[in-house]
């Protein structure tokens, strides 16, 4: 079987949708966070695939940036979650509705 661009893109889309579903339906903040990472990596996969099939390195450079920013985001996000847990003794989103009036 000849693996071409479409296959990569389909895998990327499946990964993205899995991540999105995780973000929307899961209750635990950490799991939601993992869902977010999954979505980012789905995008990375699509970028790398494009780069490979169009012989253009721009996409790979872009992926490096995404990975770097994602790493920073994980650091900040996890710190926030830890702080939140210390404050509220919970990491469940349904308990975090203070934005509502």
């Amino acid at each position: 079987m000849n693996v071409n661009l479409e296959h990569y893109l389909v895998v990327s889309a499946i990964l993205f949708c899995l991540g999105l579903a995780g973000v929307i339906v899961r209750r635990n903040l950490l799991v939601i966070y993992m869902g977010l990472e999954l979505m980012l990596n789905a995008a990375n996969l699509a970028l790398v695939a494009f780069s490979r099939f169009t012989y253009n390195l721009d996409g790979q450079v872009f992926v490096f940036f995404v990975i770097t920013v994602a790493a920073a985001e994980v650091a900040v996000g996890l710190a926030l979650i830890v702080a939140l847990y210390r404050k509220r003794q919970t990491a469940h989103v349904e308990d975090l509705t203070t934005m509502k009036l």
Partner: peptide
């Protein structure tokens, strides 16, 4: 319109998606 503002993060995420 206030009824739409549930304060639930995931509802917002769903609507956004």
């Amino acid at each position: 319109l206030r009824l739409a503002q549930t304060g639930n993060l995931q509802t917002y995420a769903f609507l956004f998606a």
